[in-house]
Simulated scan of single mutants.
Amino acid sequence: MTARITRPTGIPLWMQIETTLSREILSRKLTGRLPNEQALAERFSVNRHTVRQAIQSLQQKGLIRIERGRGTFVQEEMIAYRLGKSSRFSHSLSDQHLVSDVDIQSSHFEPASEPVANLLQIAPGNPVLRVESLDLADGKVVSVCTQYFPLPRFDGFIDIYRASRSTSDAFKNFGIASFQRVLSRISARLPNPEVAAALRQGKQQPVLYIESVYADTNGAPIEYGITRFSGDSVQIEVLPEGL
């Protein structure tokens, strides 16, 4: 099947091809061995050099691997985390037909540090609920999370969270049917030993470190979260409505 490439947009042809193939890989429409360069060139009505540029970009992003003598293969374990104003990681997993789950490791109350207090717009030292958990996709740990919820607004939140295994569902029990992401910060950091062990990776291998703040419809912050992903298994996509 020939795919239409919109040439007048000003976006290079190889980039348009790379975007198309990336979406097919992340949605699991394209799996296993990738068609060879000639087949892809015919599909997109371009020359093989243009296809080769797209393939190189996909390889650099970790979406595919090239095995000498065998061909080019999709990295099946790559997961897309689509950052949008109202989306959470579980939404991205559901879109990719992956079963999401949360393994709550611990929870306790503590006084908010100044950085946490600033992000939640509360006074330093005010109590917050801190939750440590693991995000799972089809039973595999894909991220290590720390979440902070302001108190006393969310007194009793942890019991509902443990039962529902969903932050969004727990929020609904507090009358918050909708919310939005008001801050996202993405950086690369070296993991501590506990995070590296949970993600089953080396301590010298950086993780994607994502900080998020969510607010209710009145603009009041309801959660500050830190999520650490293995860079080899998760790709971050920032949606236009999430900018």
Rank of each mutant, 00 (worst) to 15 (best):
R65V: 14
G175V: 09
A170D: 09
V102E: 11
V141D: 01
Q53S: 14
L151H: 04
F44Q: 02
S90I: 12
L40I: 07
Q147M: 13
H49N: 15
E132C: 03
S86F: 06
S107L: 02
R82D: 13
E114V: 15
P115K: 12
G125Q: 00
T72Q: 02
G84A: 11
S113K: 10
I160W: 03
N126H: 09
P111I: 06
E67D: 08
D135Q: 10
H91D: 15
L119N: 10
I104V: 15
E76R: 09
A163N: 11
I122G: 05
T167S: 13
A54H: 07
R65F: 06
Q180I: 03
P124E: 12
F44C: 06
I104Y: 11
E77Q: 13
F157D: 04
S168C: 00
G62V: 04
I104F: 08
R181L: 13
H108Q: 04
A170P: 06
S164P: 01
I122Y: 00
R153M: 09
L151G: 04
N118V: 12
I176S: 02
T50R: 01
Y148R: 10
K172Y: 04
E110A: 05
D138W: 05
R52N: 13
L93Q: 03
D95G: 02
A117C: 04
R68P: 00
A39G: 06
